[in-house]
Amino acid sequence: MMAALGALLVRDLKLAARVGGSGLLGVVFFLMLVTLIPFALGPDLNLLSRIGPAILWIAAVLATLIGLDRLFQGDEEDGSLDLMRMSHVPLELVVIVKGLAHWLTTGFPLALLSPLFGLLLAQEPDAMLAVMATLMVGTPALTFIGGIGAALTASLPRGGLILAVLVLPLMIPTLIFGVSAAQAAIGGTVPFLTPFLVLAALSLVAIVTGAVASAAALRGGG
């Protein structure tokens, strides 16, 4: 069973890396958003450094959404999802592995590169580290919550927009605690660890509910 799951992980990573895969497109989109926002707000470095964590988090949420609609859709179209349904490996684990592959190509590089984008937003080193840590812990929640929406809309021809409408409200708690933890590291009344641990808990809850709900949705053919 582990071999099968490992093979699935490698396959999904390869698919993302090849021509036609979404690859690191999420990170590029992330960079675009971070570039775009100062054009709307004005190049006031004080303002940007104050709201920088918020910008990075919003950009992370949107960048996660970008590739999500294809999470199960491609497998639904070419029939490999049917094979996964019929295999002896529990569908919940399949969902977790596919989510992990998505996170490794979207959330993880995004968190890794966030200090670089923090430079554009005049972030202090402390703040950059904090944002990186929160993104590292928080983006799995975004991926797995989004995965529910992806599973529900897998068979729909135009799932992208409705996917966003379905899952964005559910991402609000993650956003709140992610930004709070990042802000708390810069200064403020709350210790960093309080929101950070809540964020970690949210991620764990999201992985469990996301796996169960997505598997249920995929079984139903929805």
Partner: peptide
């Protein structure tokens, strides 16, 4: 499925808000 996921999420949303 979406309704039940929302049902689980509403207390979390309330708490975080």
């Amino acid at each position: 499925i979406l309704t039940l996921v929302g049902f689980v999420n509403i207390p979390i949303v309330k708490f975080s808000v």
